[in-house]
Nucleic acid binder design. Structure first.
Lengths: 371, 371
DNA sequence: TTGTACGCGTTATCAG
DNA sequence: CTGATAACGCGTACAA
């Protein structure tokens, strides 16, 4: 009998030790070893002496179960598929995946990832390939909040939509940021600081449509309107943008400045706000002294910019984490005890330096707005 | 016999069709079906009539091989592990993973991902967990270019280091950006534009150490020095920064401006350059009219900033892609025909608007520097 | 040219 | 309490 540690230290890739090896070394049956190692020794009334021998044998040989063969037998692979439409461009994916990774690891699952690049055919292939690997479930993530067509391939197994709502009827659960409440939050920041007149919107607004099929845009707008109306304040104006990039924010703000002097800007995301900053600087206006700015997302930009941006953060990490939790909880549960269909994740406010307090006679300032 | 498509359209999750089903339906043996479907029908001289029947049967039933059971049999899982120290904070990971994903998909592999958060224990667990899933190989990626301790767990299988070099002796292959050449490129941009006097470094420099164990810093610096010396130009000065964040770039540049009026700045990354921009603006200096700026990385920032930054790009996508290629090629190859140990990926120059041409009598300006 | 039988490493069933 | 034995789905020597 070679001392343990000998085979472990071999440079050459040694064959992995199997359950049979562990059992043989412990002088017991494979069955006994299996029960002990799966923690069901008590339940099966395995003698504590045998149990000790098995445990020792496993430890000494550095035994690790072969998940592949276990999957073949049990049908569960301890594996989850994460497929998104775009992983690369925005920091969105990074933090979402981070949250998903943490949640998965806590429950001993590994994550497959895939990217569809918006191609439905690729999406189908990816989902099928993952099912071929017998994933326990699939998270289908969208880069920006919207309604998506649920691929039929998804119906072959468990699935959760992340940052997306199913188009049409579907019982598939969704995990989303609470954009409406975020809109209210942004508006309240301004209201609480005494702003009332001269609040302008950059990115979207009543007169025009919001970009593409973005749900975030309509919900943020709705939340803003709700909070403002509740306070008896109305929007002074809005400049819509077809796309939410710095360049567009710059142009929109310049356009706005030609007509009116704003007291505060609600930018529909940080990139627009970044553009707005540049336009304000060009016009000799100072943030927040002359103009207050609030926005959404909490992009890295928000804390790089001077003064740092007050913004309502997308809870990337929490979104990823919640998606995995919903997926895994759904697997364990009986179909009878259904979970709610859509899970809204709160968007926290990051108070920084871009909003200043103003006092105006005309402004009613409710310190707390009850909803 | 039910018409095909019937079982496919069932709402209830139907059991997947197996190879045995396909064979039975085609009226042939499993072996024959297996050979046909693995494309070795010719080789095994299966009658074309049988081949047609098998193919039809597979198509009609929507047969998909069970990769799990195949893995158990063959030992290969069509799966690669991608573990990095940090996936979330920088846009680095996104594009690297994108490249890895593409390369993997082209060769019918799926990617597991994991994040160590810099914790060696977590790293070991992750690698072992992936080996438990019988991955064909593992890419160990680092967020910033540096030397890493190769975890012993990695030696149980194939592996490639990405954006990292092994500390100490190791035969493990590495894939890295060519930072030294990038340094030369940055310097040449300035030289070609006629700059000679007044070139300052922000982020690192001769007098001080570079941040942490960053390889990028020393290699960029080395490249810059080489190119400059070759042109008979010497650095006017340098302000090192302990960390490469906008705030530090801002401070470093302010500090520099107190002493000297620079003609050009080489910032060690775009975030530093972003800070430098702010400091220059504060001082009433205009880019590129008064001061030219070059930097590294091609962060998204570089094209958001005004004027847009001329920068030497990190080839994120290509790095990820190359890592997978090296890994997969290494698997197929015999140990005899070894590949080179380290693979250098070129860093392309992105010419934008932050460098202006100057003409000075003192400057020798070699249009092409032969190396 | 085709079919039979075995093994990959586990889990699970069912007699001792 | 334990130990054969049968799956899980696929690939492949080996026999027919």
């Amino acid at each position: 009998m070679s001392r343990d540690g000998h085979e472990k230290s071999r440079r050459t890739r040694s064959k992995r030790v199997t359950l049979a090896d562990v059992a043989r070394r412990a002088g017991v049956s494979q069955t006994a070893a299996s029960f002990v190692l799966s923690g069901r020794g008590e339940e099966m009334r395995i003698s504590s002496e045998v149990e000790a021998r098995v445990l020792a044998s496993a430890r000494e040989t550095g035994y690790r179960p072969n998940i592949v063969s276990r999957s073949l037998r049990t049908g569960t692979s301890q594996t989850i598929g994460f497929v998104s439409d775009t992983v690369a461009t925005t920091p969105f994916a990074g933090h979402v995946i981070w949250g998903a990774l943490d949640a998965a690891r806590e429950r001993d699952h590994l994550l497959f990832i895939g990217e569809t690049e918006g191609d439905p055919e690729l999406e189908r292939q990816l989902i099928e390939t993952m099912h071929d690997r017998r994933v326990d479930g699939i998270v289908l993530a969208s880069m920006y909040t919207r309604k998506v067509a649920v691929p039929k391939a998804l119906l072959d197994g468990r699935a959760v939509l992340l940052n997306a709502l199913p188009r049409g009827r579907s019982s598939i659960p969704s995990v989303l940021p609470d954009e409406t409440e975020a809109g209210r939050t942004a508006a309240r920041v301004l209201l609480d600081a005494g702003h009332a007149d001269g609040i302008y919107l950059i990115g979207a607004g009543p007169p025009n449509r919001v970009p593409k099929d973005s749900l975030a845009a309509v919900q943020r707008l709705q939340g803003i309107n709700e909070a403002l109306q509740l306070a008896g304040v109305s929007i002074a104006g809005a400049v819509p943008c077809p796309d939410w990039q710095p360049e567009l924010g710059y142009k929109a703000t310049r356009q706005l400045l030609e007509k009116a002097p704003p007291s505060a800007l609600i930018c529909f995301n940080d990139r627009l706000a970044f553009g707005a900053y540049q336009a304000l600087a060009d016009a000799g206006l100072e943030v927040p002294t002359n103009v207050s700015v609030v926005s959404f997302d909490d992009d890295v930009l928000a804390s790089w910019v001077r003064p740092q941006l007050t913004t309502v953060a997308l809870p990337h990490y929490e979104l990823g984490r919640a998606a995995i939790q919903v997926l895994l909880d759904g697997i364990q549960q009986q179909p009878s005890e259904r979970q709610p269909r859509t899970h809204l994740i709160p968007m926290p406010l990051r108070v920084r330096d871009s909003v200043t307090h103003v006092t105006r006679s005309r402004s009613r300032r409710p310190t707390k707005v009850a909803l």
